[in-house]
Amino acid sequence: MAEGMARIYRDHIFRLHGLPRKIIHDRRVQFNAKMMKELYKLLHIEGNPSTVYHPQTDGQTERVNQELEQYLRLYVNHHQTDWVDWLVLAEFAYNNCEHLATKLSPFFVNTRMHPLDFTGIGMALSNLSAEEFPKHVKEVHELAQGNLTQANEDMKRFYNRHAGKSVNYEAGQKVFLDGRNIKMIRPMKKMDDKWFGPFEVVKKVGTSAYRLKLPKT
């Protein structure tokens, strides 16, 4: 298992980026195996295993994962069986999107250029399949780019919300309900909707708690 992990890294990461100085990883056996530790030592790589609920170790990775999860939730079907189909476009859209911290895209930081995307597609072709495929990919890419930008903004607002004031809602207003404690029938909670609604506010029942008018379902 560890040797397979090393081969995957060689084939997909090393050939593009070279050797890292540090690898941040979880504590699965393929990362902590004796073979991998010896390989780290041989190549002068620092292995940095993270722990559960310790975002200081790999907080940036966790934030990226949350953005990509938000992106996938917008596209996966109800049974969550097609999420793999969206990963490649998610990767491209994320790497081609300007980040709030750097004001640059990862593509530009890495290569000093932006790759050619689907902005020039528009001509009509006699072959329907040839015309429809890039058109579909272009539409999905534009949606992905917009949604990842929104996800980036949402993540910024989430991490800065402690500095803001609480919002008061009046009866009759509509709000979204946090779904973290609601059990749904979909297979994976991670890929399920995070918010439900909007639902009508019935009345305020605490400092920041409200009774909502919910459907029987």
Rank of each mutant, 00 (worst) to 15 (best):
A151Q: 00
A6H: 08
K183M: 13
I182L: 08
E200R: 05
T149Y: 06
F118L: 08
T119H: 11
R15I: 05
K174A: 09
A2V: 05
L39D: 02
A124I: 14
V205Y: 11
M1P: 12
E38V: 03
N168A: 14
L214P: 08
G164I: 15
H78G: 15
L72I: 08
E46K: 00
T207Q: 14
G197A: 00
E142V: 08
D154S: 06
I24N: 10
S126L: 12
F196V: 01
V175C: 02
K190S: 14
G59K: 02
H114S: 15
S129V: 10
Q56Y: 05
I23M: 03
H78Y: 15
H162E: 06
P187G: 15
T149Q: 06
W195E: 08
I23W: 03
L212G: 01
D11Y: 00
K37V: 09
W83D: 13
G47T: 02
W86L: 09
E98Q: 09
T57P: 06
G164T: 15
I185H: 15
S166A: 15
H12W: 05
T217P: 09
G172A: 06
Q56F: 04
F92K: 01
I24A: 10
R63P: 04
G4A: 10
L104F: 05
H114I: 15
S105K: 09
D82K: 11
T207W: 13
D154C: 05
L72H: 06
R112W: 12
E67D: 06
Q150W: 10
Y210G: 03
L143K: 12
T111W: 12
L43Q: 02
H79M: 15
G4W: 08
Y9E: 01
H54N: 07
K204C: 07
G4D: 11
T81F: 14
W195R: 05
G122R: 14
G164E: 13
V167T: 14
V64K: 02
N147I: 02
V84S: 15
I8L: 05
A93P: 01
Y71H: 08
G4I: 09
A130L: 12
Q173T: 08
L128A: 14
V109F: 07
R21Y: 08
E46D: 01
P49I: 04
H54C: 06
Q56N: 07
K204P: 08
K204N: 06
